[in-house]
Amino acid sequence: MWNRVACLRRWIVLMLAVLVVGCAAKPDPFGQQVSRINDLSIQGEQWFSRGDLKRASREFSRALTMSRSVDYPQGEAQQLNNLGAVALEDGEIKQARDLFNQALQVNCAQGQWVAVSINQANLATIAQKAGNPGEAARHLQAAQNAAWQAQAPRALARVYLQWASFYLDQKDPALAEDFLNRSQPLATTPELKGTLAHHLGRLALARGDTGLALERFAQALTIDRSILDRPAMAGDLFFLGEVYQSRGDLCQAWDYYVRAFDVFAGLGRTSQMLRCFKRLKEVNQKGRLGHSLERFEKLTKPSPS
């Protein structure tokens, strides 16, 4: 009995000692600074996902300054990339390209191949948006090589999915299917799973299989909603509207286009809102639905300020 009590007491004393020693551990100022940079960057990502590009840019800029001030190249490259993403969403293609290239240089110098892969993928997106498929393919190939070098399955899955999107835009479903099949076992995160389901939906739609397309887009919407990836959700909703429109179910198409419109409006993405509005007009006219378009018209009109 006595031995048990003594043993318990020893354990308690030991645990307290560990706690005290742990708490009294020497602080890590650099680690704390990195932690602050991380916090700022996460805050910026949240603003970015909400479509508040101004605030996102402010947080990323602060994180960039702090990274540079403590000689933290990894953080610097990350913030440069994120600022490039903000510029790209803002329509500043040239500035975005410059920032992605700066981030790429730092990451190459540091041997951060996963980050290099992301930078190259973003440069490919710019090229795709600029209507330059040759350049986009080159960047995607570089992104794939970097992902290989990093031995990072997720990075590779991301690149494969972007290849699939690229070939779907190029109206090449066979190659798109090939990359989707390659990415399937590697897509382990909800983000990648959502993207995979979305592109599978697009593939099915491209092949005229609207039933499968509906299934895939609904699946993508569920996943994207679970991680609150709002731009992805809006894309899923739009394609659901597209599928219903192609099936002739204009009432359903109207509903999905309205939902997509509202999510895009929340993100402040005017060009996508205009696309939704165009579809809404089409569906309303063809289906003689008699819905009022006043609300959508008001929101798509540029504000006087």
Partner: peptide, 22 residues
């Protein structure tokens, strides 16, 4: 001891601008 039981904090990442073009 705390670190073992505490939930893992979120880590910032490089944003990948996914081209889900409409």
């Amino acid at each position: 001891l705390i670190r073992l039981t505490a939930p893992k904090g979120a880590r910032s990442r490089s944003i990948h601008v996914e081209p889900r073009s409409l």
